[in-house]
Design a protein around this nucleic acid. Structure first.
Length: 564
RNA sequence: UGACCUAUAGUGUAAUGGUAGCACAACAGAUUCUGACUCUGUUUGUCUAGGUUCGAAUCCUGGUAGGUCAACCA
């Protein structure tokens, strides 16, 4: 039974279907498509779909697997070239390639129109003159059947004539539309004579003023799929009840080799929102800096924040594909990027909340150049020299006047190691009039250079530090969840989700950092040791003055211990 | 008072009538010049009630819970 190894091992239920189709001979090839509407920016939910569709094409290379990029641009009022450009950029950035197969639903307007005429001739479509509110009244509701439009039984000739009139622009918007003649009593609302063409006197981003009638998604999509030879048309769950209509269009037109629509559950992530509409609201309400705000789940936001394309692909692979509604823990995304950056991000030291350390026994004016690994995970990344002097900055958190249980950082009389450098012991705490620590006077063990001592004594705590004389000042942006809820569905009825906006989702601090951090370029990624991974903001940085976004924190078992 | 879909550890996802796995998270420990990484171990699951079967997470029926559907949006 394992002889049929010509087909790859399926990775999810959709690939199960594809393998079965290949095995049964229903399909000889595999052809998918990613069909965004160019009316907004792509987000990580789209990335799931992109990885799925292009991933299937790659996985089934033996079956001539291909994936098209197709812009679903059937609504001229909403779609713009700007979005087409950003979508192409994002798909490429994610690491996928549509070769020469970038198509547009608008490429098929002529064919869609011909098919519409054929539907009319078959008596399967008619021009309806009901007004909007009348249409919905006639349509009934899910519990009660609709009733036929008074225009339902027009002759083929009348319909042809009226549709031509619509097409010539002789009818006002909303006065007439073309409907499929299916079943006004169907329990599926989508089959109650759905609109397939409407009048829109708006310029289209690609066809200009050529058309005044435009096909609806439910009609144009199956045709676009069929024209491109799509075998498996993958979409999200909300289109499930549209599938009978998708099939109706293709069957009624008696088209051979019909594509099959398969639905999967869209991605939801904890502590954020994922719909274009809500994301747009955040931008419009200036709750974020823009679509590419590093807190946004948009691909442009994730890119600016510092996520690598491969970390997002790994994430998409790990979350899997199913038909069950779900909310994925954002921690899994964090895990994916940490795992990757741990291996490749250069280590640097930066103090986010500095307190001064003065080494009382360090020779005045002496500067020691300390050698440090750029990445202990990869010796090939080399070493660098860091200046060390009499006055240093360390993290305020790394000192406790009255140390807590299990605290093994600096405290009065305690000895710690300064990473790569020397052991120091705290001898004196200097405070201001209100009791805040302003300076720690410490003694350095000159014998411990390099971070070890000749007598081999153990020092449990190791702190990062920066020479006060040489430190660069940079703006660091501490990023956190956009929303305090874990799941959008937790927002009580009648309350606005924006009430759960996290005002601390962006906190700017002035950090003291190693001199070489000042030389970083846009999108460079580093690890500030003991803090996390940071990426140079591509919008707000200036030459010699990088702004660093905290991409993700390092795991912190001390913080957990403290919460207990 | 409808149709369709879904239900497996905290989360996500496998098991395709035959030993309920994996990843993340959590917890405990080892290691550590990052309280990181790494390593070891542990806890936790088939919505429910029936039925079919030698055997059910899987098939059937009823229930429960959640989702989707009443744009001339996609």
């Amino acid at each position: 039974m394992t002889e049929n190894s010509a087909f790859p091992e399926p990775c999810n239920f959709i690939e199960d279907i594809i393998v079965a189709d290949l095995q049964s001979g229903k399909r000889a090839t595999v052809h998918t498509r990613f069909p965004p509407e160019p009316n907004g920016y792509l987000h990580i939910g789209h990335a799931k779909s992109i990885c799925l569709n292009f991933g299937i094409a790659k996985h089934f290379a033996e079956a001539k697997g291909q994936c098209n990029l197709r812009f679903d641009d059937t609504n001229p009022a909403k779609e713009e070239q700007e979005y087409v450009d950003s979508i192409q950029e994002d798909v490429k950035w994610l690491g996928f390639d549509w070769d020469d197969r970038c198509y547009y639903a608008s490429d098929y307007y002529d064919k869609c129109y011909e098919f519409a005429l054929e539907l009319i001739r078959k008596g399967k479509a008619y021009v309806c003159e009901l007004a909007g509110d009348q249409v919905s009244e006639y349509r009934g509701n899910p519990m009660h059947p609709g009733r036929p439009s008074p225009w339902r039984e027009r002759s083929v000739e009348d319909n042809l004539g009226l549709f031509a009139k619509m097409t010539r622009g002789e009818v006002d918007e909303g006065k007439m539309f073309l409907r499929a003649k299916i079943d006004m009593a169907s329990p599926n609302m989508n089959l109650r004579d759905p609109a397939i063409y409407r009048i829109k006197k708006a310029d289209h981003h690609r066809t200009g003023s050529k058309w005044v009638v435009y096909p609806m998604y439910d009609y144009a999509h199956p045709l676009g799929d069929w024209i491109e030879g799509i075998t498996h048309s993958i979409c999200t769950l909300e289109f499930e009840v549209h599938r009978p209509l998708y099939d109706w269009v293709l069957e009624t037109l008696e088209l051979p080799n019909r594509p099959q629509q398969i639905e999967f559950a869209r991605l939801n992530l904890t502590n954020t929102v994922m719909s274009k509409r809500l994301l747009l609201e955040l931008v419009q309400n200036k709750l974020v800096m823009g679509w590419d705000d590093p807190r946004m789940p948009t691909l442009s936001g994730l890119r600016r924040r510092g996520y690598t394309p491969s970390s997002i692909r790994t994430f998409a692979e790990k979350i899997g594909v199913s038909k069950a509604d779900s909310v994925v823990d954002i921690n899994l995304l964090y895990f994916c990027i940490r795992e990757e950056l741990n291996a490749i991000a250069p280590r640097r030291m930066g103090v986010l909340d500095p307190v001064k350390v003065v080494l009382t026994n360090w020779p005045e004016g002496k500067v020691d150049m300390i050698e440090a690994d750029n990445n202990p995970e990869d010796p090939g990344m080399g070493k660098r020299l860091i200046p060390f002097g009499k006055e240093l900055w360390i993290e305020r958190d790394d000192f406790m006047e009255v140390p807590a249980k299990k605290y093994f950082r600096l405290a009065p009389g305690a000895e710690v190691r300064l990473k790569h450098a020397y052991y120091i012991t705290c001898k004196e705490v200097v405070k201001d009039s209100s009791g805040n620590v302003t300076e720690l006077r410490c003694e350095v063990d000159l014998e411990s250079r390099g971070g070890g001592s000749p007598d081999g004594r153990k020092v449990k705590g190791t702190l990062h530090w920066v020479s006060a004389e040489h430190a660069a000042d940079v703006e660091v942006r501490l990023l956190d969840h956009l929303f305090t809820f874990e799941n959008l569905s937790e927002v009580p009825e009648g309350r606005d989700y924006k009430e759960f906006y996290n005002p601390n989702s962006l906190v700017k601090v002035n950090a003291k950092v190693e001199p070489c951090v000042g030389e970083l370029k846009a999108l460079d990624r580093i690890q500030f040791m003991r803090h996390g991974y940071f990426c140079v903001d591509s919008r707000d940085s200036k030459p010699g003055a990088p702004v660093l976004n905290r991409l993700v924190e390092l795991k912190d078992s001390w913080a957990k211990e403290q919460k207990k």
